[in-house]
């Protein structure tokens, strides 16, 4: 886990761990509420204290109900979200990595302008752009289709910045030179040399893109009016709103359980990707 640090293996510090545990508690309290709430029935949610268990342990029945409510639409929403994330976040990472690499390692006319335009565009609040985007997509016939979600998720300006900075620092020009001299084309150089060095940055970008696409709410809400295309966020909000108004039938227990189930794939992705933070070191390559 820490092979890259100094040959003198530092001792594990209990003090440091203790301080971090304090911060951890701060992080965990709301998460504990979430976890405990998934063990309660709807009635228990309203009548028992938040940070302890309810009168009965309904964790497994909640999961079952969440997966089967309304003919199992939760699974459909889950499938939609996976599709949007795999194509959207995957595509976003690829585009951002390539573009960051290009901006960092190539000098061409308009480079500064690209940066300025990017910054300017990201600085405009997205919610006010929702209606123009909707009208545009409507004219292109894309609303109420999966493309309305996927195409906007392909652009991750933050991912681009991240990759730009990492590429500047982590990919030495000499390596690229060496590969070119050996006769590789630009794309070959990118895939064989740069990608490996950029791995930690790519993993971070991918993770962020995954989380933000997975939790994307506002744009799907505007673009979609067919419930069987909804991602989980919009679907769960619909369940949550069942608690309001005439004929209300709250199912908060399914909402919290659904939210927990929503987080699990992200945690799994995190755990799977984290070993890539260990690799990608350019140790020794310059010598």
């Amino acid at each position: 886990m820490s092979a890259l640090t100094s040959p003198l293996r530092p001792k594990r510090s209990k003090l440091l761990t203790g301080v971090m545990v304090l911060y951890l508690l701060y992080t965990i309290v709301p998460l504990a509420w979430l976890l405990l709430s998934t063990t309660k029935t709807q009635d228990d949610l309203l009548s028992t204290p938040g940070l302890w268990f309810g009168k009965s342990f309904a964790f497994f029945s909640n999961i079952k109900d969440t997966l089967t409510y309304n003919d199992g639409i939760f699974l459909r929403w889950l499938g939609n979200t996976v599709l949007y994330v795999v194509v959207g976040a995957g595509g976003a990472t690829l585009l951002a990595t390539a573009a960051g690499y290009g901006l960092a390692k190539y000098k061409f006319a308009g480079r500064r302008a690209v940066f300025a335009v990017l910054l300017g565009a990201v600085a405009v609040p997205g919610t006010a752009l929702a209606v123009p985007t909707f009208l545009m997509f409507s004219n292109l016939g894309l609303t109420n289709t999966v493309w309305a979600i996927i195409i906007p998720s392909l652009v991750s300006p933050f991912g681009l910045y991240l990759m730009w900075v990492y590429a500047t620092d982590a990919v030495p020009g000499e390596l690229l030179e060496a590969a070119r001299i050996d006769g590789a084309g630009e794309v070959r150089v990118f895939f064989t040399v740069a990608l490996r060095l950029l791995a930690p940055g790519i993993v971070t970008t991918l993770l962020f893109a995954m989380v933000s696409t997975w939790n994307n709410y506002f744009l799907p809400l505007i673009m979609l009016s067919k419930p069987n295309l909804y991602p989980l966020t919009v679907g769960l909000t619909q369940w949550s709103n069942q608690a309001t108004g005439v004929g209300a039938r709250p199912i908060y227990n399914l909402v919290v359980t659904g939210s927990l189930l929503t987080i699990v794939p992200l945690v799994v992705a995190f755990l799977l990707l984290q070993r890539f933070w260990q690799s990608g070191l350019s140790a020794g390559s310059v010598k």
Binding site: Y23, L24, P30, L31, L34, L236, S240, S259, I263, F270
Partner: peptide
């Protein structure tokens, strides 16, 4: 520490 970022807004 990363988990809070992953919690969806609906909850």
């Amino acid at each position: 520490i990363f988990l809070p970022y992953a919690v969806p807004g609906v909850v």
